[in-house]
């Protein structure tokens, strides 16, 4: 069992890096998009909010695998040809953005209305009100659900193997194809995913503790 795992390790390095790359790109892309769209949803006019709301609800309602296949097999029909890697990243990012929009909106609207008014009363512009008053407080409500969603992204990235991207999951499959020993390899895969997500959880708890100290209320 252990020997099978040790034998497999060198073959998994490349796939592991791809998993990290997919997760990292998805987390970064969905964070940027989600922050902008979530803020627009929280403060923007109805004509702006409605399409964002529709997008967020749709992205979250579709099974991730359906979204990945739609982007990978569907877009070429529209003349957009993405490599498996970028198709998978795009699909996962759309999916995650739906979640981040909701987390951002929730965090912002949880801040008491009086904070915005006090910030207006000292003459801060909209951007400064967000920068100095709303976001520093909202980040504390944002972090716990967001870190959850980051670990979700890492787990969800395993689905990219289904469109032929050689990530950690695919690399494991390939080794199994040679050794016919699925159990030790899947176990090893589970351990690696757990290790990544456990370290994320530890980081998140540290961050939360830090922000809780800063925003004692």
């Amino acid at each position: 069992m252990i020997e099978a795992m040790i034998y497999a390790l060198p073959f998994l390095g490349q796939g592991f890096l791809v998993t990290l790359a997919v997760s990292g790109l998805v987390v970064a892309g969905s964070l940027v998009l989600g922050l902008v769209l979530g803020t627009a949803l929280a403060f923007g006019p109805v004509w702006l909010g409605l399409p964002i709301r529709a997008f967020a609800d749709t992205a979250r309602a579709i099974p991730l695998i359906v979204l990945i296949f739609t982007v990978y097999y569907g877009l070429p029909a529209l003349g957009v040809n993405l490599s498996p890697f970028w198709a998978a990243v795009a699909a996962l990012t759309l999916f995650k953005t739906g979640h981040v929009i909701e987390i951002v909106r929730g965090a912002i609207t949880s801040i008491a209305a009086g904070q915005m008014e006090a910030a207006k009363a000292i003459g801060l512009s909209f951007v400064d009100r967000l920068r100095y008053v709303i976001f520093p407080q909202a980040v504390r409500r944002f972090l716990p659900p967001w870190i959850n969603s980051v670990t979700d992204s890492v787990k969800g990235s395993a689905l990219v193997s289904l469109v032929g991207v050689v990530d950690l999951m695919m690399a494991i499959q390939q080794v199994i194809g040679r050794t016919y020993q699925p159990m030790p390899l899947y176990l090893l895969g589970a351990i690696i995913y757990i290790a990544v997500n456990a370290s994320l959880s530890v980081t998140s708890r540290r961050l939360e503790a830090r922000f809780a100290r800063v925003v004692a209320s």
């Binding site: 008491a112 009086g114 008014e117 006090a118 207006k120 009363a121 000292i122 520093p136 407080q137 800063v214």
Partner: peptide, 21 residues
């Protein structure tokens, strides 16, 4: 423009509304 005008009007609130952070 509203921000520039509000800068010249001070306001103190019933619930204080201090910035907790």
């Amino acid at each position: 423009a509203l921000s520039a005008i509000r800068a010249d009007i001070g306001m103190v609130f019933q619930m204080f509304n201090l910035f907790p952070h």
